[in-house]
Amino acid sequence: MKKSLLDHVLDWTGRIVLTAIVGFVLLPFVVVAIASLNESAILSFPPDSLSLRWYANAFEYRDFAEGLVNSLKIAAFGALIALVAGAGFAYVLDRYDFALKGLLNGVLMSPLIIPNFTIGLGLLILSAAASLPRTMWLVVAVHVIIVLPFVVRSVYVSLKNFERGYENAAESLGATPGRVLLTITLPLLMPGLISGGLFAAILSFNEFTASLFVVNQRTQTLPVAMYNYVREYADPTLAAVSVIYVVVVAVTLLAVHKLFRLEKVLNVE
């Protein structure tokens, strides 16, 4: 097929625009990654000489190690709880008609409107008033509230696209409603569930604002630990942590990709 001049122009401008966008998105990370290799104890760019000492420092600094473990635990529990609750809500919203359905939907979506610091502050006041201990579960609760709308949306969309014929077929073959759910609906919704859970985990892992209100020294998450660090020191350790951070998330996504094929999970297939 012969391309016209216009096609060529569009083709090239397309490529240039795409490259620019990708470059723009990646720019902060590239700058930070380079800064993390700076020999000297200031966050400057470009570095004068290169070294990995800040990586060593990052691994030795206990708050980061503990923060990472906390963050992973909180993300795992938070995502799991949000996934189970969110999938349940989405199923009810899709399958049943009831009074106040719109209201329930609105309430579930409200964390998209209410800023994270309000949620954090609210739970801080509440836990103080009820004199609840500031445990990890308080942080998990905050994270569940924040990520729930995303999970509900993600599962709801999968349910809307779900071919009801599969369920009818199973029913006609003698499957009870419970069996249909377990052997047909859930397996076929699995990609949507995994993607919902994955987004929830990543959002939780990145969450900072609300966490700041409800953590203490023992339960602080990695982002909070980083914030506390940067208030005292201005060396490139934080840049090194950022790089480690990105690597952890990327490795997680890659693992999911290997296990379940990411395209399918992200519904872009």
Partner: peptide
């Protein structure tokens, strides 16, 4: 309810379970 009617249904778009093999579909 349908699961107690003992009726066989063939759907226009087949509605074969995509996560099962042919034999598993038939065995369902």
């Amino acid at each position: 309810p349908p699961h107690q009617r003992e009726i066989g249904v063939v759907f226009q778009n087949y509605a074969l379970f995509p996560h099962m093999s042919v034999a598993q579909n038939v065995a369902y």
